[in-house]
Write a protein that binds this DNA or RNA. Structure first.
Lengths: 182, 182
DNA sequence: AAATTAAATTGAGCGCGCTCATTTATCAAG
DNA sequence: CTTGATAAATGAGCGCGCTCAATTTAATTT
């Protein structure tokens, strides 16, 4: 009977995603999602623990999609260039889904136990060979710049993806010399 | 009649701060605050726009206090050393008030219009002379490390202030050479 | 002291995310 | 089929942050 359950889940997710786009996350109530999906209020929460989990389920697959795209066209050589390459794909996505991203990060930031392994794995992708201790440190600093530039952009009413990219590029350029020292 | 109003405000703030400490922020309802302060539910919101504003009012004065302390004993010479000096005072405070800090940053992060000037002012404090363009860029990178290290620490169940400081110190040490080049 | 205006406080009530005892649907065993 | 067990869906209801028309209190004017 897990097929029908999957269908219900999919209906909820689809209805939610549409409403989130139409009215925004905050302005979409879980009751509205339930109504749009044709289920009872409680059913929503038998499929998703919280309202935010619905958003996550919708957005994470899309982020992974963007990362995959970036993976495929990765040709840059230095860690900084590689990071910038990923930012070229991810910043525009985050910027286009700014409210969703903010809500996501609000929670994700405090779940470092889940986040840290993912970040470390990502850092490793920035280096062609297994990184040395000093490389990892450098990778973390790069990621700090990556995230703060993103968070600044998401929190600023004036920011666009291209300005965020510009800002990150400038920060990464500061390191310049270190990049070649592998 | 603004004296009595101030008194009411102070009673609410005091009651709130005590309850926040006793049961935590999330587990303290605005109704409980009202009851403890001896006012009606609505009165709380005639003095503070939101529940979070109550927390802010309580915590920001304390943060400014900590910064002032750090200001007074500032003797470090390089920007990185100065930043570390401030972290030595602020990280412990944030770590001791982790839940409050998380709630605060949840909102503050997305108010970059307010935050940016404060950060830029802080960066200027890191440099003895008016910083050049490249100095400012360097300052922003330092701040990225400062904030991300803090956010990581606040989101990690295992982290202590001293581990956060250790982590920041290591990151800042990476720059080593640049510091002297003023 | 009374009347008028303005400031401060009140608390019923709203919509929210979410829970959970109850009901309904599904399906295998007798 | 009937029955009994399990999975899925239900919706009334909870406590929450917060609003706002109504009321009380204080200050000002006459």
């Amino acid at each position: 009977m897990s097929l029908k359950r999957e269908q219900t889940r999919a209906r909820i997710l689809q209805a939610a995603w549409q409403l989130f786009h139409e009215r925004g996350y905050q302005d979409t109530s879980t009751r509205a999602i339930a109504r749009a999906a044709g289920v009872a209020d409680g059913t929503v929460f038998s499929h998703f623990e919280t309202k935010l989990e619905i958003l996550k389920a919708g957005i994470i697959v899309r982020i992974e999609d963007v990362i995959e795209q970036a993976d495929r066209r990765l040709s840059a050589s230095t860690p900084a260039q590689r990071l910038l390459h990923y930012a070229e794909y991810l910043y525009p996505f985050y910027a286009e889904n700014a409210e969703f991203s903010r809500e996501l990060f609000k929670e994700l930031l405090w779940q470092q136990d889940d986040l840290r392994p993912q970040i470390e794995a990502f850092i490793r992708k920035l280096f062609p060979k297994p990184p040395a201790e000093r490389d990892l440190l450098y990778g973390h600093i790069l990621m700090d710049c990556y995230f703060m530039t993103l968070l600044e952009g998401l929190g600023d009413t004036e920011y666009s993806a291209s300005r965020m990219l510009d800002r990150l590029e400038r920060k990464l350029a500061y390191f310049g010399s270190e990049d070649g020292a592998d």
